[in-house]
Design a protein around this nucleic acid. Structure first.
Lengths: 183, 183
DNA sequence: ATTATCATGTAAAAGGTTACATGATTTG
DNA sequence: CAAATCATGTAACCTTTTACATGATAAT
């Protein structure tokens, strides 16, 4: 699926592998992330398949920049994927839920420590979601009004992330309480 | 991570690879799933590592049953994993959010079709979560009171699944409405 | 008659992570 | 003075998916 994230990102503007990593960390990270190394190798594949082209811009001190641009065939590929009906739900994998599911095998104190640690991590994410509210996106749209449709959808994904995270934190609070009192 | 699901399941009772697939489909499926083929190969690895042992029970018409049991070393391995602090959040991957994020590249009608299809799939899951309420688990506990701690945690994972799914369905309704009116 | 259940696996390919290798410039 | 930023990749490894191969019995 990373191929489509890269095609999607490059449909806005040409970027280097490094830029793409930054782009993902600032936008899709909460629902699709990738390591730098995977980005580089996937870019290579996509170029070989003709969905991308690259130009090299030499630099004195640093490795030369290799800037990728999407080709017509890449754009077509992206649209095809976006339009193909998703007849299944994306499978979910949650290590925390797995540990809770089998949590009766460890002692109360250790289990509570796990839950509290995850709670603190999730709360940080929730704060990030909330600080990233519409304003930032709004500013972007003011500069590029042609992206208003995009911005609506970006904001929608942010909203789901915020809501999901809020539910998660609340659930952790309830679960922590439950374990404290009846375990 | 599948290794730990298998160790966890086998900590309750010995099972075949087939049984384990059924177990997962009925319990962890919403937060950890696996293909039959992966289960078989992971079981083999776990046995080689000494975390499991297997006994073969010949059958006339069907392939012989290979029943796996957890060893002491396997139990220790499981507990070690359960107790190891989770200092990161499990990464989330959602194909739907990815498609929504880049959804401005396709037409309104196609995008709405995607959203509505996913909504119907998610609603089915929500119904399953709701029909699977405490009663079923409660019955199990009546028979095996030593599993009451386990049951509490199983029910907790079910609850989060239900809440997450409910939020998702509501979000889809709002997003569908938004796309219908302002896209 | 067809589908579901029970029951085993192997092999190839794709997707993803971890570790390695290099190094100047800017910011705190 | 240390850490972050910019910038490229390769190689080994691990995890997961997909495709293949077989076949009786019971339920709809």
């Amino acid at each position: 699926m990373l191929r489509y994230v890269l095609l999607g990102a490059l449909s806005y503007e040409p970027m280097t592998g490094y830029d793409l990593k930054t782009f993902m960390d600032h936008s899709t990270a909460h629902f699709w992330h990738a390591r730098q190394s995977q980005i580089y190798s996937t870019l290579k594949q996509l170029e070989q398949a003709g969905y991308l082209e690259s130009d090299i811009y030499p630099q004195p001190d640093r490795p030369d920049r290799r800037v990728y641009s999407i080709t017509d065939s890449g754009r077509e590929q992206l649209r095809e994927w976006l339009a193909k009906p998703m007849t299944d739900l994306s499978p979910v994998k949650s290590e925390l839920l797995l540990r809770v599911f089998f949590g009766a095998q460890i002692d109360k104190v250790t289990l509570l420590a796990q839950l509290r640690l995850q709670r603190s991590l999730l709360e940080a994410i929730l704060t990030r979601y909330r600080n990233q509210t519409p304003d930032q996106i709004q500013d972007g749209v003011a500069e590029h009004p042609e992206l208003s449709r995009d911005a609506m959808l970006w904001e929608a994904t942010r909203r789901l992330g915020e809501q999901h995270t809020a539910v998660y934190v609340r659930w952790l609070d309830e679960t922590i309480e439950m374990v404290e009192s009846n375990f």
